[in-house]
Each structure stands twice: as structure tokens, then as C-alpha cells.
Simulated scan of single mutants.
Amino acid sequence: MAKTGLTSEELKEKVMQITEEKIRYYGFEKFRLTDIARELKISHAALYNHFPDKAALLDGISARWLTQMDNTLEQLSQKEAPARQVITEWFLKYHELKKEKVLKDPELFKSFNMAAEILKPFIVNHLHHLNEQLLILVQKAIATGEIRGESPEKVVQLLLEATISFHHPRMVLDHKDEQREPLLQRIVEVLLDGLT
């Protein structure tokens, strides 16, 4: 355990929590690792053992948020309901989670958006998880006759491409003040109708 009395994982979590608070208060550009170390009463070296630089800390915060999102969507994807219904709900929840972050944590979302633009490994991992979840739902919808499609992978690609403005970080930010959920629901339903 560190001098703080926290385990290594608890310390990392505490660092991320304090960083989030600092970013919310001072903004994305102004927080410093030295401020975080001082608040936790640890040396800069102890902090650097967990996060070698500011970018690594910001990536840790974004990765944690994406893991939470993946878990929420995973739970939804296992819902006992017709697969077609779950696919629509899945897209609505995906959009809601992105929009919620933009509205509640705009400064933290900036960091996530920068990481997404250069496809950092944790972003690629997140996209892989989402693709897998949607693929399972589409396979189920095809197996139960709710939709048709020779290639579930192509159906997933079609759905993701057609709804990109509702989940791409930059586009969610651009439309953050709009109520686009009914439009998203209609788009997904029209796409699924076309596959019926």
C-alpha cells in the first residue's frame, strides 16, 4: 500500500476522481499533475508510476468511462425481448450515454474526442466491444426471422454507418442541444423494416 493507505488500484481511482473534479472546475487545459499529487499528499514520482504524463491520465479517465458504457450496453443487449426491439433500444441508449457525457462533462468529453480522433488502443477496444454486442443481436434477429440478411457483419456495418451522426463524438457534440432521439429511432426502424 502507498503512504495514503490506499492500494495501487484505489490510488489510481482516486487520482482519476480528483482529476475529473479539477477538469470540471478549472477546465481541460488548466489542470496539472503536480496539483493532483499535492492534493493526495504523494510525490510526483508516485503519481508518475501510475500515469506517466497528463495524456495517460486523461486516457485512463476516458477508458474508464467507455468501460462503463460497454457494460451498460452489454446488460441491455442481454434483455429478454425481441432482438429487433433490443437493437433499437441499444442505439437509443448508446446515443443517450454519449450525449449525457457531452452535456454533463463537456471538458472531459474534449479529452475523449481527441483520443477518438486518433483511434487510441482503448478506443479501438471499445469499438470492438460495441461491434460484437450488435453482431450478436443481429444474428439473433436473423435466426428468429425478425430481419433478413445473408451477412450479419454487413447488417451491423449498415446500422452503424447509417446512425453515425448519433454516436460519433464530434457529431454528438455538434448536435448536443437537439432532441434527436425520435429521428434516431425512426432511422433504425426504417433500416430494420428494409431488412424484414
Rank of each mutant, 00 (worst) to 15 (best):
M1C: 14
A2P: 07
I18D: 07
T19S: 13
T19H: 03
K22L: 13
I23G: 09
I23P: 01
Y26T: 14
R32C: 05
D35T: 15
I42R: 12
S43R: 12
A45M: 12
Y48Q: 10
N49T: 14
W65F: 14
T67G: 05
T67N: 10
E74F: 10
Q75L: 10
P82D: 02
T88Y: 03
E89C: 01
L92S: 04
Y94M: 02
H95F: 02
L97P: 06
V102I: 08
D105M: 05
E107K: 02
A116Y: 14
E117I: 12
I118S: 09
L119P: 02
P121Y: 05
V124F: 11
V124N: 05
V124S: 00
L130S: 05
N131Q: 08
N131W: 14
L137H: 07
Q139H: 09
K140I: 00
K140A: 10
T144F: 00
R148G: 10
E150D: 06
S151M: 03
E153T: 09
A162N: 04
T163M: 01
I164F: 06
H168C: 05
P169M: 06
L173M: 14
E178W: 05
P182I: 12
R186D: 08
R186E: 13
V188D: 04
V188P: 01
V190A: 08
L191I: 04
L195D: 04
